[in-house]
Amino acid sequence: MTAVIAVLHAEDVALEFISVLREHADRDVRVLIGQAGASVNLPGGLSLRERLELLAPAVEPGGNTADLPTPDEVAALLGESPGEVWTHSPADHRIRRARFGWTVSRAVPSLPVTYSVGDNPFLQTVPGKAVAVTGAEAEAKIDFINRRAGELLRSRVADRLVTTDRVPAVERFFIADAARANRLYALISSLGEDAAVADDPWEFGRSAYESARLDATAAWVARWCSPQDGPLVEVGACEGELTRRLAGKGYRVQATEPNPRFRARLTERFPLGPEGGVEVLAESLEDLAARRERPAAAYLLIEMLYYDQEPALLDDLPTDLVLVALESGQLNERVWPWLRGQSTWRVAERVELAPPTLEPVCDGLAYLRKRGSRGLVLARAGRAG
């Protein structure tokens, strides 16, 4: 059975999968090129340079916008029963490569796929296999890029730019089934709609860090509002881990979630509507500010001002109290400059809700730095207390 290397761009074979060609030096290897929707056969017995030369016509330095193939289209290109499949990590920081690797995992859901660790400065994937390339193989990588993909050394497209760290001297790989690939892709897609492809992508329900952070956040809310003060509007409630804690303390919560997949899970968790203490709504922060239809004791913006919302939207929220929680870097870059230039809100409290920590994710398949959480209580100017 044929080994298949499924890559987004032809040059990715030279950059990340040279050791796979060594492992299959005497066997045919088929390369599936996602950007082109095509495949190239690399016969066994050829030299490394000869095999790479077969890929040269497929290098397209300027291309990075074509529609990616669907899982069904990838499955058709793979054909029946590929012996081995190698592809990009679903957690690659270059999101189109991550999406392609995720698509490959869905195309062969019954087959464990081997993924290149790839490029991600924020997430460390624990490799099951690490192979040092030889001097000759390093020369082959360099030669192929210089001769056949030299434009990529000065590409203005960040994901296509070939930098030294993207020409690794040690190629690292891990094996994961489709379910774990799904979780990795959801995690790397945390600021986009695809974050919802997996249940609880941030592991709020299983992470010691997230549990402590959410407990501290709920206690912080309780110091500033009592259930008798009126409803709370929780903006961007995701799947409801903070919502659950607040409802358990007796609060009436209007939990808003514009992502339809997250909102469906939120509704399943709190099916009774406002009679049960939780009302699930679709509004975004922009909607809430524009409509001004939901007066509340406080608005909770907990770890959700990461999506380029304008902080000035807070001025139009029908409340005198807003609790904002973010990691300190985002507070310093986005919130504090805005606060210093306005007079509508005063800072009533600053608090650390959770310190930064290193934590494993995806059942130990990877680890990352959780950036911590700091809270600001913003009281509308003139409000007592």
Rank of each mutant, 00 (worst) to 15 (best):
I5T: 08
L15P: 09
E16C: 12
E23M: 10
E23Q: 14
D26V: 04
D26A: 15
D28G: 14
R30W: 08
V31P: 06
I33S: 07
I33T: 14
G34I: 09
A36M: 02
A38N: 04
L42V: 11
L48W: 11
L52Q: 10
A58H: 15
A66D: 14
P69I: 05
P69R: 03
T70M: 05
P71W: 06
S81C: 03
S81F: 00
S81G: 10
P90L: 08
A91K: 00
D92F: 04
A98C: 08
F100I: 00
V104S: 09
S110C: 01
L111T: 15
V113H: 07
F122V: 05
L123T: 14
V133E: 03
V133A: 09
T134A: 09
A136K: 07
A140Y: 14
A140F: 13
A140V: 10
R148V: 01
A149G: 13
A149W: 04
E151C: 02
L153P: 14
L153F: 06
A158M: 11
D159F: 01
R160E: 13
L161I: 09
V162I: 15
R166Y: 11
V167Q: 11
A169C: 00
F173R: 01
D177T: 08
R183L: 13
R183K: 14
L187C: 00
E193T: 07
D194L: 02
A196C: 03
A198M: 09
R206L: 05
S211Y: 09
D215S: 09
D215C: 02
A218L: 05
A219W: 09
W220T: 05
A222E: 11
G230C: 05
G230E: 08
G236W: 07
G240I: 07
R245S: 09
Y251D: 03
V253T: 04
Q254N: 02
Q254M: 08
T256G: 02
P258A: 10
G277H: 08
G277N: 09
L281A: 12
S284W: 05
L285K: 11
E286S: 14
P295N: 13
L301W: 13
L301R: 02
E310C: 03
L313Y: 00
D315R: 12
D315K: 09
V322F: 10
V324M: 08
V324N: 08
A325V: 15
V335W: 08
W336A: 00
P337S: 06
P337V: 05
G341M: 04
Q342C: 12
V347A: 02
L358V: 10
E359R: 08
C362Y: 08
D363V: 00
D363T: 01
K370L: 10
R374F: 10
V377F: 01
G385Y: 10
